[in-house]
Design a binder for these strands. Structure first.
Length: 218
DNA sequence: CTCCCGATAT
DNA sequence: ATATCAGGAG
């Protein structure tokens, strides 16, 4: 069904890459954003736009002590919330979106984070990337999260030539086995942080070098 | 396409 | 000084 337009050799190359990823980044890899509830992950993911997960975890550690419920966020003071999340950047938009998002969840969804992609992306501050993080990590629905790492590395590996995140998402869905969708994102982020970094990728240390299309200078 | 935007590594 | 970080909205 999947991968109809792909040659046998290319299919084998992709499968070898996936096998190696499984080997180096085991299935124990899970969500990098600390959270105890679905709505906490949603807020953490909204905060993670153009911000390291490390800093988000630093901020949410105090944030979730101060705002203990969705209702707390729905009723939060904008300026105060801006201060609370300031260090994550884009704080004005993020604070406004978090309050509006929390209000919608409380008033329209009974405080439950929906699993449908349309309902999720309908929430303030929630795009496809954030929606797929929720679908994958909370509801275990096969979904591909296209973030900056997935975009960069999938391109270098030759998995896609697309630039548009949504197009990349659908091309990867066609290329990767469904049972690997959620893990792929987590593995690629791990790889993107340790080896295939945006600035000086450590190609000489990369276990995927021989299988990589890019093979950039290290 | 532009704007939002602080913190960190290089 | 500049690039980059689990992007999204107008």
């Amino acid at each position: 069904m999947a991968n109809r337009r792909i040659t046998k050799a290319e299919r084998e190359r992709v499968d070898k890459i996936l096998t190696l990823l499984d080997e180096y980044y085991t299935t124990e890899y899970k969500c990098y954003l600390n959270h105890e509830t679905p709505w906490q992950l949603l807020i953490a993911t909204i905060l993670s736009a153009q911000c390291t997960d490390e800093r988000v975890n630093l901020v949410t550690k105090d944030l979730f002590k101060k705002y203990k419920t969705l209702e707390d966020f729905a009723g939060a003071d904008l300026k105060e919330l801006e201060k609370d999340i300031h260090s994550t950047g884009f704080y004005h938009n993020k604070a406004k979106n978090i309050i509006e998002c929390a209000k919608t969840l409380v008033t329209e969804y009974g405080g439950v984070v929906p699993k449908e992609i349309d309902k999720l992306t309908g929430l303030a501050g929630v795009g496809r990337k954030t929606a797929n993080v929720i679908r994958g990590n909370i509801y275990h629905e096969p979904s591909i999260v296209v973030d900056t790492h997935v975009k960069r590395i999938s391109g270098k590996l030759g998995f896609t030539k697309a630039e548009d995140p949504e197009k990349i998402e659908f091309e990867l869905m066609d290329l990767l086995p469904k049972d690997h969708w959620i893990l792929y994102n987590l593995q690629i982020i791990a790889h993107g942080r340790s080896i295939c970094t945006a600035r000086n990728p450590k190609c000489t240390e990369c276990f995927l070098y021989d299988l990589c299309k890019w093979k950039g200078k290290s």
